[in-house]
């Protein structure tokens, strides 16, 4: 479904990704793990069109999307739930969710989608008219995920969904991600919390200093010493 082929990418003259390739098949949950600064976020930003690769290409369902503007990528059906939640602070929860359904294919059916999404996030139903900025960190993350789902994407990408959340909330976030995955959604997820993600994923890639050094089934990666080494230097 998604293929990243030999991509070099970065900001300005700075190269962050070197010859990065990865594949995500329909219905799969794939994760990219790696230490801070390894280039995980840049990989997701490249897929969503926020960063244009210097060489190589990004293909979605066989078509090249690496030259598209971010809004065109969203229209194709790829939605990124960004790091740090990035809500619209002065809008209500309801408006935030409606913004998620801005995509052409999602706008017409947004009331139905809203119903479905609120089924997954019952807590948000009680908060619909509150300002997004008045929510707790965990609730904001839920809004961010729900907003991403409102686009009815074909591929949903998560960037560090557990960042800065208390352990108990992290559990809840991963419960939700598992539910989303179980619903048949194709998911690409980038996470610090290696254990949780590998548990939730089918396959994983290990990114080190902008290069893909390892890819394997998620269970196998949990056992792999290389992962520990990358994070803890032991």
């Amino acid at each position: 479904m998604l293929e990243v082929r030999n991509v070099d990418a970065g900001y300005g003259s700075t190269v962050i990704l070197q010859d990065v390739s990865l594949r995500v098949e329909e219905g799969e949950v794939v994760t990219i793990v790696g230490a801070n600064g390894a280039g995980k976020t840049t990989t997701l930003r490249t897929v969503s069109g926020l960063v244009t690769p210097k060489t190589g290409g990004v293909f979605f369902e066989g078509e090249e999307i690496s030259k598209l503007q971010p809004h065109d990528v969203v229209d194709r059906g790829i939605t990124l739930i960004p790091e740090g939640r990035q809500l619209f602070p002065d809008m209500s929860v309801r408006e935030n969710l409606l913004m998620g359904a801005h995509r052409r294919d999602a706008r017409g059916v947004r009331s139905e989608t809203l119903e479905e999404v609120l089924g997954l996030f019952p807590r948000l139903g009680e908060r619909l008219d509150q300002h997004a900025s008045s929510l707790s960190g965990g609730e904001q993350q839920m809004v961010a995920i729900a907003r991403g789902m409102m686009a009815r994407p074909r591929l949903l990408m998560f960037d560090e969904p557990s960042l800065g959340l208390a352990p108990i909330i992290v559990e809840q976030v991963f419960d939700v991600i598992s539910k989303v995955a179980a619903s048949g959604m194709t998911v690409l997820i980038v996470e610090q919390n290696v254990w949780h993600t590998l548990k939730a994923a089918d396959r994983g890639y290990v990114l080190e200093n902008g290069e893909m050094v390892l890819d394997d089934a998620a269970d196998a990666l949990i056992e792999n010493d290389h992962v520990r080494q990358a994070y803890l230097g032991i």
Partner: peptide, 19 residues
């Protein structure tokens, strides 16, 4: 320090520390 269970937990998650 890097073998301290608290540290492993902080970095990799609780279960990793127990593994």
């Amino acid at each position: 320090v890097v073998r301290d269970p608290h540290v492993i937990e902080a970095y990799l998650g609780k279960e990793f520390a127990d593994a």
